[in-house]
Computed example of a mutant assay.
Amino acid sequence: MTDTLLTDLISAIPMPALLVGQTERIVAANTEAQSLLGQAIEGRHFATILRQPQVIDTVEQSLRSKEPGRARHLSNDGAQDTSFEVQSRPVNGTDAVLVVFQDVTHLEQAGQMRRDFVANVSHELRTPLTALMGFIETLQGPARDDTAARDRFLQIMADEANRMNRLVGDLLSLNRVESEERVRPKEPLELTRLIQSTLNTLRPLADDAGVNLSLDAPSEPITMIGDSDQLRQVFTNLVENAIKYGGSGGQVDVFVNLSDRDTAMRGPAVRIKIIDQGPGIDAKHLARLTERFYRADSHRSRELGGTGLGLAIVKHIVNRHRGRLRVESELGQGAIFTVILPR
């Protein structure tokens, strides 16, 4: 096989790849390898380019034994740490070794997300379970005949059990919406009626919090394709959050606006804005609000019965409807949650 053909073949590989000769110098490297490892690397000793001991040892072993090897190469693309699985394989008919870098960053991130998810669920369940076990032990012992303490402890136990029940319910809901995210809804619905029904359901909660709910929507019906149960869940979550966390302003407004060409959707769309007059959200939290178990105010969220999964559920439902979720807020200026749905 000619050197020109080897170079052309390496250039055609759609991932970073380089050829190391028996002299331990890089014979050829494709564009992707040069982007990862640096320009003008051909002709240089591979150890001065790869540098990471595990990768160097793997390539050296392949050069000596003519056997394939595998290693891990760590890098950074300027925005995040990256991880590559490196495979070195001898090229038949030559004394060279082909070294290929496969980006496995997304796989490691997915694995980390799963580990974080399990850790977060365990933490969220451990706290109420510990409280329940402690109160049960107390009721079985020192507080057995203390009526006042028993009633107080039983109420706390009921609150903690309800908290676990909400968490399990949200976990099941999150699993369901994630599994359906790529399935387009097919049923027609009338959006204004759905939002009005949601507000009517939440009005007792608003009255207890001293919050006035208002709806400003077009008079004509807004018919669209969507999952009515899931969209009701979206608006229930957002309005309930506005009441609980932004209700100190005493007002939560819902605006529904139609557009024949929305800039975000590049076509006909409807925008639903939920606006509160509360304390607002610090800008550093906005980008992470839809992450599982992320809370801008962990203590207050738990006090109000939040599970940290509500906005993650909202995000997945909006994605299923091919929509967008926008959050705008400044400290002391309230918050605006905007759901943009195609029509």
Results as ranks from 00 to 15, higher is better:
residue 343 R to A: 14
residue 114 R to P: 00
residue 204 P to N: 05
residue 138 T to R: 11
residue 189 L to N: 11
residue 223 T to N: 15
residue 283 A to V: 09
residue 195 I to M: 12
residue 273 K to C: 07
residue 86 V to W: 06
residue 162 N to H: 09
residue 196 Q to W: 14
residue 139 L to W: 05
residue 130 T to K: 10
residue 249 G to H: 02
residue 223 T to E: 15
residue 157 M to D: 10
residue 33 A to V: 09
residue 122 S to H: 11
residue 15 M to T: 14
residue 128 P to A: 04
residue 183 V to L: 14
residue 343 R to C: 13
residue 208 D to C: 00
residue 273 K to T: 11
residue 141 G to M: 01
residue 242 A to D: 02
residue 229 D to A: 09
residue 117 F to R: 13
residue 297 D to A: 12
residue 36 L to P: 12
residue 126 R to D: 13
residue 239 V to K: 07
residue 284 K to E: 03
residue 111 G to D: 03
residue 147 T to H: 01
residue 6 L to C: 02
residue 183 V to I: 14
residue 271 R to G: 07
residue 212 N to R: 15
residue 3 D to I: 01
residue 121 V to W: 06
residue 28 A to V: 09
residue 253 D to N: 12
residue 34 Q to C: 15
residue 192 T to F: 13
residue 337 F to A: 02
residue 151 D to R: 11
residue 278 G to D: 07
residue 56 I to G: 01
residue 235 F to C: 07
residue 263 T to P: 08
residue 137 E to P: 02
residue 102 Q to H: 13
residue 327 V to Y: 03
residue 11 S to H: 09
residue 343 R to D: 12
residue 266 R to K: 04
residue 142 P to M: 12
residue 133 M to Y: 10
residue 66 K to A: 13
residue 151 D to V: 12
residue 158 A to S: 09
residue 111 G to F: 00
residue 205 L to H: 07
residue 290 T to S: 08
residue 40 A to H: 08
residue 237 N to K: 01
residue 65 S to E: 07
residue 298 S to I: 11
residue 170 D to V: 04
residue 209 A to P: 01
residue 230 Q to D: 04
residue 66 K to G: 10
residue 57 D to C: 02
residue 1 M to S: 05
residue 116 D to Y: 14
residue 154 L to M: 08
residue 227 D to R: 03
residue 161 A to F: 03
residue 139 L to F: 03
residue 29 A to C: 04
residue 195 I to C: 13
residue 98 L to F: 04
residue 212 N to M: 12
residue 149 A to M: 13
residue 296 A to G: 08
residue 278 G to N: 06
residue 264 A to I: 00
residue 244 K to P: 00
residue 288 R to W: 05
residue 171 L to F: 05
residue 275 I to W: 00
residue 221 P to K: 10
residue 113 M to F: 09
residue 58 T to K: 08
residue 125 L to H: 07
residue 237 N to M: 06
residue 158 A to G: 04
residue 136 I to H: 09
residue 147 T to Q: 04
residue 327 V to N: 01
residue 101 F to L: 07
residue 216 D to I: 14
residue 60 E to H: 12
residue 263 T to H: 12
residue 135 F to A: 10
residue 235 F to K: 01
residue 183 V to Q: 15
residue 269 A to N: 02
residue 87 Q to M: 05
residue 284 K to P: 02
residue 262 D to F: 06
residue 275 I to Y: 01
